[in-house]
Design a binder for these strands. Structure first.
Lengths: 197, 197
DNA sequence: CTCAGCTGACCGACCAGTCGGTATGCTTGT
DNA sequence: ACAAGCATACCGACTGGTCGGTCAGCTGAG
């Protein structure tokens, strides 16, 4: 009765993600999650310490995925402008393909217990710095403008990415890959050094 | 005892804004708000229909402010690039000066009753279109690139702005005005047409 | 037998919103 | 001048209900 289905733990995570994205963490009761997953509360508290812990697991999963992908693109061979473009386009595509995760992430971060929040922030910080280093590298080489701090450029770009959850719809006219190309173009263009006049 | 203070209604809105930004809408009880404002629940329900209504008022206030300012900059004389730059820099500065409002806005929108949410979205839509028209205008004149849809450029830029609440700190090294200048520069640069090769 | 996996009734805490009531002051008829 | 009538502003105990989390016990595989 259970081996033909997705394991209970995965079902719980999946349904929780869907419901948190749809109605928010605090408007979703534990009862609703376990009902959607076809189990009872005892099962959830068997696999997770708390409702908070469930949220934390969702965060960890998305951070792992994004870090892996960023490393892949950052470590590739080729000029830094190309690597940055590829990484930027990819994070947009990955984000729209996991839009529920993204919605939850930025709506509910402040609801995590302080310790948990701190560790999530630290992981995000690592990601941010890895991305920023690509910008700094290009600035050192002189292929990117350097009159704006790399940190600000990265916050500028990721603001756009993280906000996708509030307006992007998969049913809309533009695909994830198409949007990624546009966003990456905008980023790279905004980094072009001034032409001497 | 009361005429020397800010009126009760304003105090309630102010404390609610502070608390919602600090701990989130759903983690703040009505009791906490009224205690902070030095009144009781009866007073709050005298001035507002519900906790939801309180949130709605906060939204209405910030939308009114931003729309007024955008209209001011968009209607000014001068080339479209300058008007767009000024409007972009200003919305950044205004946002960091009212960072609590911004935090609440994007964390709690999904908690509003469907009807209320619809009307807030409609108002935001007007704002978005006014801003987008500046981009379209520049594209028609040929001073901005037109290979990326204006709507996407605007969503890109406002993603950055709306996300300020998650990372910007007034204690940090950069002022609201400084950040506004950087963000506006990045936007304008990303809109520069390709030079013929 | 054992034990991981899971059940479902139950508990204590909390919370939005209600309601009967009080205090104050403005208005209007005399 | 005065009082009756009424509206505004606010109080705070209370209610009905919800929610996260617990726990004693059931079950089926090894």
């Amino acid at each position: 009765m259970s081996q033909d289905q997705e394991p209970v733990r995965q079902r719980l995570l999946g349904e929780a993600t869907r419901l948190f994205a749809e109605r928010g963490f605090e408007s979703t009761s534990v009862q609703e999650i376990v009902s959607a997953a076809g189990v009872t509360k005892g099962a959830m508290y068997h696999y997770f310490d708390s409702k908070d812990d469930l949220l934390h697991e969702i965060y960890a999963r998305v951070l792992r995925l994004q870090t892996d992908r960023l490393n892949h693109f950052a470590d590739a061979p080729g000029p830094v402008a190309e690597r940055l473009h590829a990484a930027a386009a990819d994070v947009v595509r990955t984000t729209v393909e996991n839009l529920d995760d993204s919605k939850i992430f930025f709506r509910s971060m402040h609801l995590l217990a302080p310790d948990t929040r701190k560790s999530v922030r630290a992981e995000r910080r690592v990601y941010h710095e890895r991305f920023r280093d690509l910008v700094t590298e290009g600035q050192r080489e002189g292929v990117f403008r350097d009159d704006i701090p790399a940190d600000i450029v990265v916050d500028f770009f990721f603001g756009s990415v993280h906000h996708l959850g509030t307006w992007y719809s998969p049913e809309g006219p533009i695909s994830g890959a198409g949007l990624g190309a546009h966003f990456a173009d905008l980023l790279l263009t905004s980094l072009r050094p001034e032409k001497p006049e």
